[in-house]
C-alpha cells in the first residue's frame, strides 16, 4: 500500500530525521509514504487572515493536489497522510468544513479553477499514527520488530493538536492510547503521566520564551517524576520546544537532569532495525541513554 504523503514545511527544515525515519519505517510496514510532487504550506499560519475563505485555499489546494497525486499512485487510498500534528489538525478541520459546506467548497474551487485544480471533497486526512493503528495494525508491527526497546520508559506526549479540536482529533482526547499501544508493540515500557497534552507553548517560543519555559519545565519534570527516561512526540514544534528549552533551563541552573525527546518514528526505526542517520537535530543528546540500553 502507498499513501499520498504531505510533508508540510517543518519536516523539510527542522524535523528531517522525523521524516527520514517515518519514510523508512513505512517501507518496511508496506504502508509507504510517497511524497507529493509539489505542495504548499498547510496554512496554519494564516490565522491572521480574517477572510475565512482565503484561509482555506491553502489546505484545499493540498487536498486537490493530493487527489491528483493519488491518481498517479497505483495501490492507494483516497487518503492524505501527514506527520506533523499541526498540519494534520489544519487539514482535517478544513476538510470537514468544506465537506459540510458545499457552497464554501465551490467558492474555493473557483479560486483553484484557473490552476486546473478541483477538490472533489472525497479525500480523508490521516495522521500517520492513525495509519499505523487502523490500517497496518500493532500486531503487524510486533511481527516486524527486530530489537525490543527493553528498558525504555516512555512518556507519550500528544500535545494539543492531535487531540483537539474534535474535528481533528485522532484519538480519545482524555484517554488517548495510540502512542502507548505503539510503545508496547515496540517492547518499551509505558509511563502513565498527567502532562500528555499540556501545551508546550507553541509559537510563543519566538516572542514569549518565558511561557514556553514554564510549560516545558512542568512537562519534563512531570515525566521524570513518573520514572520516564524518554519522551516521544509526533510534532516538530513540540519536539523543538521540549528539547531545546531543557538545555536552556539546564544552562540557567533551573534543572539538573535532562530527558531526551524522540519522534515516535525514530524509536520505531531502532526497533525495526533501521540504521539511524544521526542525532544532529537533538539538543539533549539521546546517545548515552540508547547506548546504555544497548540500542545503538
Amino acid at each position: 500500500m502507498k499513501y499520498s504523503y504531505f510533508p508540510g514545511c517543518n519536516l523539510k527544515t527542522n524535523a528531517k530525521e522525523y521524516e527520514h525515519t517515518a519514510v523508512e519505517v513505512s517501507k518496511i510496514l508496506d504502508a509507504e509514504l510517497v511524497e507529493m510532487p509539489v505542495f504548499n504550506c498547510c496554512g496554519t499560519v494564516h490565522s491572521m487572515v480574517s477572510d475565512n475563505t482565503m484561509r482555506r485555499v491553502a489546505p484545499v489546494r493540498i487536498l486537490s493536489r493530493s487527489e491528483e497525486h493519488q491518481k498517479e499512485l497505483e495501490d492507494t487510498k483516497n487518503t492524505v497522510v501527514t506527520l506533523c500534528s499541526m498540519c494534520s489538525s489544519t487539514l482535517k478541520v478544513v476538510n470537514e468544513e468544506v465537506k459540510e459546506d458545499e457552497e464554501m467548497l465551490q467558492k474555493i474551487n473557483w479560486q483553484l479553477e484557473r490552476d486546473n485544480l478541483k477538490y472533489s471533497g472525497h479525500s480523508e486526512v490521516k495522521h500517520y499514527l492513525e495509519i499505523l493503528r487502523d490500517e497496518v495494525g500493532f500486531e503487524e508491527i510486533i511481527k516486524k520488530v527486530k530489537k525490543q526497546l527493553k528498558g525504555m520508559k516512555i512518556a507519550s506526549y500528544y500535545g494539543c493538536m492531535l487531540l483537539h479540536p474534535d474535528k481533528a482529533k485522532i484519538d480519545d482526547s482524555e484517554t488517548p492510547t495510540v502512542m502507548e499501544s505503539l510503545t508496547l508493540a515496540l517492547g518499551g515500557e509505558v509511563v502513565d503521566w498527567p502532562y500528555f497534552k499540556t501545551c508546550c507553548g507553541s509559537y510563543h517560543v519566538v516572542d514569549k520564551e518565558d511561557i514556553v519555559n514554564n510549560q516545558v519545565l512542568k512537562i519534563t519534570e512531570g515525566a521524570k517524576k513518573r520514572g520516564a527516561n524518554a519522551i516521544i512526540t509526533a510534532c516538530p514544534l513540540c519536539a523543538y520546544n521540549l528539547d531545546s528549552q531543557q538545555v536552556f533551563l539546564q544552562k540557567k541552573g533551573v534543572i539538573k537532569e535532562t530527558i531526551p525527546v524522540f519522534y515516535f518514528t525514530q524509536l520505531m526505526a531502532i526497533a525495526l532495525g533501521i540504521k539511524l542517520k544521526n542525532f544532529e537535530d537533538h539538543h539533549v543528546d539521546p546517545k548515552p541513554l540508547l547506548k546504555s540500553l544497548g540500542l545503538i
Binding site: 509539489v38 491572521m48 484561509r55 484557473r114
Partner: peptide, 21 residues
C-alpha cells in the same frame, strides 16, 4: 511565511513560472 497559496502570482507570471511553488 504569510503566503496564502492563492497562486495569484503564478497565474500572472508572463514567464509561466510556478511562482507560488
Amino acid at each position: 511565511a504569510r503566503c496564502l497559496s492563492c497562486n495569484a502570482c503564478s497565474r500572472v507570471c508572463p514567464q509561466d513560472i510556478q511562482v507560488m511553488d
